[in-house]
């Protein structure tokens, strides 16, 4: 069964897609246009009531929330492709911890930056400069803690690539490329090496340009 993934152009959907590639799961993509309001149409809302991408269809399963979907596939196909969860329950706990850190500490400010730097004019509202400044400061503080962590282990959850690292790919890519803030990564030696490592994975190279 081929997994159908909606909205391949957007960061949260790319989080799912890169996981599917790591696990060697076949997929097809269904483009949707956020700017045109596709996500607020009744047929889309019937699939994803919150009106955001991603949503996936896999046989009789319809699932949404990117971090739920990646956990589902990483568990279901534990021994296929890259193991993204760690070998023991304890390692899995540490993976969960850093996935939560991404979701609660890293994502909110980087999402604000994405919306206000890249999408505000397309969506027809003024960029909030104060929010942009505050968000950048918050990301900087989180990256300082990552720098310390990554001086002790190669990846966030330990010496193995996991969902925790993978979850950072889509929006960090936007930060270093479209947003022109690569210095935030390069100013931090260990974060910079980690970024080079995770962003050069074949899975990410395959997914990053999907539209």
């Amino acid at each position: 069964m081929v997994v159908k993934v909606y909205g391949p152009a957007y960061g949260s959907s790319k989080r799912v897609l890169v996981c599917l590639v790591e696990k060697g799961i076949d997929f097809e993509t269904v483009p949707v246009d956020l700017i045109k309001g596709d996500l607020k149409q009744p047929d889309f809302l019937a699939l994803q009531p919150f009106g955001v991408v991603p949503v996936i269809q896999d046989g009789e399963y319809t699932l949404y929330e990117s971090r739920a979907i990646i956990r589902y596939y990483a568990e279901k196909y534990k021994s296929q492709g890259s193991d993204l969860l760690g070998k023991t329950i304890e390692e899995r706990g540490v993976v969960e911890q850093w996935v939560e850190v991404e979701a609660h500490n890293y994502h909110p400010p980087i999402y604000n930056l994405t919306v206000h730097i890249l999408f505000a004019s397309k969506l027809g509202f003024p960029a909030d400069e104060k929010l942009i400044k505050e968000s950048e400061e918050k990301i900087g503080k989180v990256l300082d803690i990552y720098e310390e962590r990554l001086s002790k282990s190669k990846y966030l959850a330990g010496d193995f690539f996991s969902l925790a690292d993978l979850s950072h790919l889509p929006f960090t890519q936007r930060l270093v490329s479209e947003m022109g803030k690569e210095y935030m990564i390069r100013d931090r030696k260990h974060v910079s090496a980690w970024w080079d490592d995770i962003s050069s994975r074949p899975s990410w190279n395959k997914v990053k340009h999907l539209q």
Binding site: E90, R92, G93, Q97, E100, V101
Partner: peptide, 12 residues
């Protein structure tokens, strides 16, 4: 083992 983030702890 030390863990933080409440939702990671409950999952563990």
């Amino acid at each position: 083992l030390t863990l933080f983030e409440s939702r990671a702890i409950t999952a563990y």
